[in-house]
């Protein structure tokens, strides 16, 4: 079937299988930031935005994005950079494999919530698992990033 959608602001028309996942489609489109982690919609690694909302691309049928706007980390690199630098300074990336999904959910959170505190951030990001860091460094980085946003 033919799928028409916008990827990071660019209109695309592609042939897809009806049971193709958004994850497969995006990787085929060269979006290397989109990675699989668990296959059961539990880990958050494959997070992308559909119409601005974070979703799990491993469980999202590609067919469903017909006419919608899909955003991956490649499409919000500039917006992500400050947060990435905060994470790097804390050493909060470690293996880095879960980072793009985490960044996509965190950026969505900062767009959605005015001034989230630690508990609110933990709740919003609970679906992003990380096995390396123990999360504390990520939370420190988020707090510093949020502080930087406030002082702007």
């Amino acid at each position: 079937m033919t799928l028409n959608f916008a990827l990071n602001g660019r209109k695309l028309s592609r042939e897809i299988a009806p049971d193709e996942t958004l994850l497969q489609l995006l990787r085929d489109c060269g979006m290397h930031s989109v990675r699989s982690g668990c296959d059961t919609s539990n880990c958050g690694i494959c997070t992308v935005w559909v119409d601005g909302k974070p979703v799990l691309s491993c469980g999202y049928l590609a067919a469903r994005v017909e006419g919608r706007a899909v955003t991956t980390l490649e499409g919000v690199k500039d917006e992500a950079e400050a947060l990435m630098r905060c994470l790097a300074a804390e050493g909060a990336d470690q293996c880095g494999y879960c980072s793009p999904g985490f960044l996509m959910c965190a950026l969505a959170m900062f767009r959605e919530l005015e001034n989230p505190g630690d508990a609110e951030m933990r709740a919003y990001l609970a679906g992003n698992l990380c096995r390396c860091t123990g999360y504390a460094s990520q939370m420190r980085a988020l707090a510093k990033y949020a502080e930087g946003r406030r002082s702007k």
């Binding site: 539990n42 958050g44 909302k53 959170m109 679906g127």
Partner: peptide, 12 residues
């Protein structure tokens, strides 16, 4: 519904 997996999951 709040404890269900994560925001992304609940968005879907």
């Amino acid at each position: 519904v709040k404890p269900i997996v994560g925001v992304q999951f609940r968005n879907m």
